[in-house]
Simulated assay, not measured.
Amino acid sequence: MPLALCCVSHSPLLELPGPDRELLDDVSAAVGAAAHFVREFDPELVVTFSPDHYNGFFYRTMPQFCVGTAAHAVGDYGTYAGALNVDGDLALELAEAALHAGIDVAVSVAMDVDHGTVQPLGQLFPDVGAVPIVPIFLNSVAAPLAPIHRARALGTAVGEFLGTLGKRVLVLGSGGLSHDPPVPTLAGATGAVRERLVHGGPVTAERRAARERQVIAAAQEFDSGVSTLRPLNPSWDREFLTLLDDNRLEQVDTWTNPWITGEAGNSAHEIRTWVAAFAALATQGRYDVRDRYYRPAPALIAGFALRTALPAAGGAPNDRRAA
Rank of each mutant, 00 (worst) to 15 (best):
S108V: 09
S140G: 03
G155R: 04
H115N: 15
I103M: 14
T190V: 13
V113F: 09
T185E: 07
V158G: 05
V107G: 07
P184D: 05
V86Y: 03
G188L: 02
A71R: 01
S108E: 12
E160T: 14
T185V: 14
G78P: 04
G129E: 13
Y77R: 01
F161Y: 15
G129L: 02
G155V: 06
R152V: 12
A95I: 04
T156P: 03
T185A: 08
D89Y: 10
F125D: 04
A153R: 14
V131E: 00
Q119I: 15
V198R: 00
D114V: 07
S174W: 05
D104I: 05
V193D: 00
T190E: 11
Q123H: 09
L121Q: 03
N139W: 12
A143W: 02
D89P: 05
N139L: 13
A81N: 09
G166T: 08
G188D: 02
L170A: 09
P132I: 14
G155Q: 00
A73S: 12
A110H: 13
A106F: 12
G176S: 13
G163L: 10
S178K: 01
V131Y: 14
G188Y: 03
S178D: 02
V113G: 01
Q119M: 15
T156L: 13
G175N: 10
A106N: 15
P184Q: 06
K167T: 12
G191W: 05
P181D: 00
E93G: 01
T79N: 12
G82F: 06
T79D: 00
R168C: 11
P184N: 08
V128P: 13
A157C: 03
Y80I: 07
F137T: 04
G129K: 04
I133M: 12
T156A: 04
D127M: 10
D76M: 11
E93H: 11
S140T: 15
L124F: 04
A110Y: 15
I103K: 07
I136K: 12
D89E: 13
V128Q: 06
V141L: 12
A142W: 00
A142G: 01
P184G: 11
E195A: 15
A91H: 08
L172F: 08
G116M: 12
G175D: 09
L172E: 08
V113D: 04
D76S: 06
M111P: 01
A157W: 01
S174K: 02
